[in-house]
Amino acid sequence: MKQDTAVRKRKVEQEEEKPSVYARAFKGESEWEDKDEFLDVIYWLKQILGLLLGCVWGILPLKGFVGLLLFFAINSLIVYVYFNSFQKVDEEEYGGLGEILKEGLMTSFATFLVTWIIFYSAIHTD
Rank of each mutant, 00 (worst) to 15 (best):
I48E: 07
V56I: 13
A6T: 14
E37F: 04
S108P: 10
A6Y: 14
V21G: 09
G58R: 00
L68M: 14
V21W: 10
E33N: 09
G67Y: 01
G28L: 09
I100R: 07
R8K: 13
G28N: 08
V79N: 03
I118Y: 10
V81H: 04
G67T: 00
F112N: 00
R8I: 15
Q47Y: 09
S76I: 04
T125F: 10
Y120R: 15
V114T: 06
L105R: 07
S30K: 02
I78A: 07
V7K: 12
F119R: 01
L77S: 10
R8H: 15
E16S: 12
G50K: 00
K88Q: 12
E91T: 03
F71Y: 07
Q47V: 09
T111A: 13
K88C: 04
Q3A: 15
L113S: 12
P61F: 01
L62T: 07
K9I: 08
M106V: 13
V79E: 03
L49V: 04
L101P: 02
S30R: 03
L68G: 06
L52Q: 06
E16L: 15
I118M: 06
D126T: 14
G58A: 04
D126Q: 13
A25E: 03
E29S: 15
L70F: 12
G58K: 00
Y80H: 10
T115M: 10
L60K: 08
L77V: 10
W32V: 06
Q3N: 15
I118H: 01
G28M: 11
K63Q: 11
W44G: 04
W44T: 10
K11H: 11
M106A: 11
E99K: 06
K46E: 08
F83S: 01
Y120W: 11
W32R: 06
L60V: 13
D4S: 13
Y94I: 07
F109L: 12
G98T: 05
Y94L: 10
R24L: 13
L97D: 12
G54D: 11
I100N: 02
L51K: 02
I78T: 04
K63L: 14
K88G: 02
Y120D: 02
G58I: 04
Y43R: 05
K18P: 03
E92L: 04
S121G: 10
I118F: 06
K9L: 09
E15R: 09
R8E: 15
E91N: 07
D34A: 07
E15G: 06
S20I: 10
E15F: 12
R24C: 05
S121R: 09
L101H: 06
F109K: 08
E33G: 10
E29G: 14
L53K: 05
L62F: 09
S121C: 09
R24H: 08
D34K: 09
L97E: 15
I118R: 00
L113D: 08
F65R: 11
L69W: 05
R24A: 07
H124K: 07
S85F: 09
V7P: 11
E13G: 08
V79T: 06
S121N: 11
E103K: 06
G50C: 05
K9D: 12
G58V: 00
G96N: 07
W116P: 00
G95C: 11
K102V: 01
L62E: 02
K27C: 04
K88F: 02
T5W: 11
